[in-house]
């Protein structure tokens, strides 16, 4: 008879401990196993959250450890919510979020649909497409800063070639209204492959016999796409939107490298503003309130979205 790992562990356990454990109910043993994880979760996630909520009602500044900390009630919250700049930053974040997700889903799904059709060099093309998402945001930020440079960058020359507008007469990252779209383009270039991979998984999970049955029923390709492909890939698509939405809500590095939030405040996302409040201006109480507002926003939106996702899955 061969030893199982459980047998070996049982033999290695000192008899005194074995006796003690043998006497414990299953529920207690389960708690013993789960307790370290729960402890870590409380220490690393829950405690900081509660502490942040507490700080958000004070005037605490982390760079003034000796200063008196005063309870300010909901003043930080009212200041943030009545500040026009905060709302402008929220709008910038919403612009970035909506358009990046729109383009990434559109292009990502189209690419996945094309890749899903078997052709020669399929694997090579897939590998090449996913390269951007494997790069560091720091590299991508610097790389695109050069591409957008009006004098030496490729982007302006392409625009000049196509439209006749002189390359050095406009700046994609400067004034003129293009900066917001420039960061959308870079994020779309970088993260569309991620959406594509998720969509590809969805498309490949659709059994062939469903299409065969549709062929037998003489359903057109167009009808097959809208009544089989899209509904069956929808849960995957929605998952991709959830991931990208959460990621882009806290987008920071790429935008800081490309524009620093400028020109003016044109690309100042809420996450960049929060970082400046917390770690440059050191308004810890105020930034804690800001963080809680952003957390509640993301958590609320994500909860509604997950419910919708579950409903789609159940269909």
């Amino acid at each position: 008879m061969t030893d199982t790992p459980a047998d070996r562990i049982a033999r290695a356990t000192p008899p005194a401990i074995a006796r003690r454990v043998r006497g414990l109910p299953d529920r207690v043993i389960a708690w013993i196993f789960v307790a370290p994880t729960i402890f870590l979760l409380l220490a690393v996630n829950i405690f900081p959250l509660i502490w942040t909520i507490r700080l958000s009602f004070t005037n605490f500044a982390a760079n003034k450890p000796n200063a008196e900390v005063k309870w300010v009630g909901i003043r930080n919250y009212t200041r943030i919510l009545t500040d026009a700049d905060t709302w402008a930053n929220m709008q910038t974040t919403a612009h970035f979020l909506i358009w990046t997700i729109f383009f990434q889903v559109l292009i990502g799904f189209a690419l996945a649909w094309l890749i899903n059709r078997k052709f020669k060099g399929n694997d090579l093309v897939t590998t090449l497409i996913v390269i951007p998402m494997m790069l560091s945001p720091a590299v991508v930020g610097n790389f695109w800063t050069f591409l957008y440079q009006p004098q030496i960058g490729v982007v302006n020359y392409v625009v000049e070639f196509l439209t006749g507008i002189p390359a050095d007469s406009f700046s994609m990252l400067g004034p003129g209204g293009w900066a917001r779209w420039s960061i959308v383009i870079v994020d779309t270039w970088m993260w569309t492959p991620f959406v594509m991979l998720i969509c590809l998984a969805g498309l490949r999970s659709i059994p062939d016999y469903i299409y065969e049955a549709a062929e037998v029923d003489r359903a057109s390709k167009w009808r097959q796409f809208w009544t089989i492909t899209v509904p069956m890939a929808l849960p995957f698509l929605m998952l991709a939107v959830l991931f990208r939405g959460i990621e882009n809500f806290r987008m920071f590095d790429l935008v800081v490298l490309l524009t620093g939030g400028g020109p003016g405040d044109e690309t100042l996302l809420a996450s960049i503003d929060l970082k400046r409040e917390a770690f440059e201006k050191w308004r810890t109480g105020y930034s804690s309130a800001y963080a809680i507002i952003l957390f509640v926003t993301v958590f609320g939106l994500a909860s509604i979205y997950v419910k919708a996702l579950n409903r789609v899955k159940q269909r």
Partner: peptide, 13 residues
């Protein structure tokens, strides 16, 4: 006015 008239293209940051 100095920024508008006299800097090289792309010097917004």
């Amino acid at each position: 006015s100095l920024y508008d008239c006299c800097v090289a293209p792309g010097t917004s940051n």
